[in-house]
């Protein structure tokens, strides 16, 4: 379980998070929505310890991410996977090396065992046979799928998605949504996705939370968000300007 409690974060004089409270239950998929620049990715970075809050805490199974040392943080991160917005594949490594890097660094598996696991993960995301390609040879959708294979390579308990469908055509975006749903049921993952794509949010979410001006202003199921009386929520999900 992930428990985000009263998180504040500002950059220079700009307050980005202003008292965020959110709980994500084990096994559920929580989608955090909100306008561009509202702090969704910043919140995600706090969960995995890439940023430290000015105030408040992020607890993963009771461990406060901002109060542990680097060694403990690295041990915790082995239980998490993250898909970055631009996939963040390592340019100088092949697809297979990208996916297998975590295993090579942290496991005692032999090169053949790692190769088997990498092939299995690539197969899970529909990228079989691409292990020898370089990231520069992949399309945007393929990069996301390889990024996803890398994120699940270590069999994490939690997976974080930063804008998983942004920049993809609708069909590829739907394929990524299907993959997220399939991975969740196959690997019993607890997932947190940040997106402003409402089609994706409605499809993959068990619950949706909306971040607005540094606070969570709504949290509920995809059905409940449609019935929310909050005008800000309705405007966002219908895509209406002020």
């Amino acid at each position: 379980m992930i428990d985000i409690s009263n998180i504040y974060k500002s950059f220079n004089s700009k307050q980005v998070l202003a008292g965020v409270d959110l709980s994500i239950n084990t096994g559920e998929t929580m989608v955090i929505i909100g306008g561009s620049g509202c702090g969704k990715s910043v919140l995600l970075r706090h969960i995995i310890g890439l940023m430290q809050p000015d105030r408040g805490s992020v607890k993963i199974d009771g461990t406060d991410v901002s109060r542990i040392n680097r060694k403990e943080l690295f041990a915790l991160r082995k239980r998490l996977g993250m898909l970055f917005q631009g996939a963040a594949l390592f340019d100088s490594l092949t697809v297979a090396e990208n996916v297998g890097l975590g295993l090579r660094e942290h496991s005692e598996y032999s090169a053949e065992q790692i190769s088997d696991i990498v092939n299995k993960k690539l197969e899970m995301v529909g990228m079989s046979g691409t292990g020898g390609l370089m990231p520069a040879e992949l399309s945007g959708g393929m990069k996301k799928r390889v990024g996803l294979a890398r994120a699940i390579a270590m069999d994490p308990e939690y997976i974080l998605y930063d804008e998983p469908t942004t920049g993809l055509d609708p069909i590829m975006a739907d394929k990524i949504n299907d993959l997220i749903i399939a991975l969740r049921s196959r690997m019993a993952l607890t997932s947190i996705a940040v997106t402003h794509d409402m089609v994706s949010a409605a499809k993959i979410a068990d619950r949706i939370a909306m971040l607005h001006q540094g606070k969570i202003i709504f949290c509920g199921t995809p059905e409940e968000i449609k019935r929310s009386p909050d005008e800000r929520v309705q405007r966002f999900i219908k895509g209406e300007a002020d």
């Binding site: 890439l50 082995k78 996977g81 970055f84 631009g86 963040a88 100088s92 890097l101 975590g102």
Partner: peptide
């Protein structure tokens, strides 16, 4: 140039999230 590109394309953050220390790696 290589490390700068890795930084702005979140590759160094990706290493961190994989529990790989960018300093050592």
């Amino acid at each position: 140039a290589e490390l700068g590109t890795m930084k702005v394309t979140e590759q160094i953050d990706a290493l961190e999230t994989m529990a790989i220390d960018p300093v050592a790696y």
